[in-house]
Write a protein that binds this DNA or RNA. Sequence first.
DNA 1: AAAGGCAGCAACCGCACAAGA
DNA 2: ATCTTGTGCGGTTGCTGCCTT
Length: 311
Amino acid sequence: MGRAPCCDKANVKKGPWSPEEDSKLKEYIEKYGTGGNWIAFPQKAGLKRCGKSCRLRWLNYLRPNIKHGEFSEEEDRIICTLFANIGSRWSIIAAQLPGRTDNDIKNYWNTKLKKKLMGINPPAHERKLPTFASSPGIPPFQSQPLSSSLYEECSSYYSQTTKSFSGLEAISFPSNYLSSSSSLATNPSIFQTHESWVGSQPYYPVTENVLTLGSEGSRSSDDGSSTQISYGRDNIKQEGMAFQSYISTGLEENPKSMLNYDSNRGENLKQWAEKANAYFDFGEIPLHYALDEVKQLIRSSNSGFNSFVQY
DNA sequence: AAAGGCAGCAACCGCACAAGA
DNA sequence: ATCTTGTGCGGTTGCTGCCTT
């Protein structure tokens, strides 16, 4: 038996909102606010809608200062940069783009930006990647030839054959790790190597290629039309590699001690935090907001992570 | 001009989490 | 400590309008 529905599905209207409903919703909120309870809202406002639907309509469409229409090149860059770094966490990305909603950005990514990236993907045979010698305990890394265009850089990871991005891992913690420290203890599989990531896939620690941000490597073009995404061994922080190594070798040697927080809370977590600090580095992302603010967003949205990683 | 295909986007769904009882 | 409820989020669906044949 699942949880009770949030509203009486039989008696609520679904589908597109009419102008009358819109104005009813808007007028009520302008007069009385949301009342802090969206579930009760429709009844108070005299709307035959689910509370969640009202909330969505307000947040995504009716609320003041919502920006609709074309995304700028700068917005494109921010979305790409953040997507590469934190994945499909649209609410966080939206927080960096004033006036844009998470839904808007998600739609834009899925319908346009992703295709933009895919569109100029060179054939696989033209993308032979050099492999760097690996250090002991550290898996080999590969670099990409540097290019001046953000789209080329990102799209080089897109496979026309599999219709998915592959061989690229953002420098990021696995999303399930970020959102819940306990999942780490119960789901060792998050450490396994995987070969593809798309929006819906969880992030795993880097295994092969790394897309890092800022530092040296590719640079913005003169007109600023590209971003500072760059990748390659030179940009990979030793700490990050060590962190990866720490995870993989540690798991092999003693999975229990790596995963059992209850009995090992303390030293293990301290090491985790240290490695995590080094690993979780945004570099010099050219955003309107300070990196600290981005990190703050992530911290504030992931209490599990926050509970043991101190910056 | 009509039909089919496709892209864009608004809205829905279900899950996870947090807060409060 | 457990259960219930509201909220927020990301993934998905389906409607609508435009484009192509």
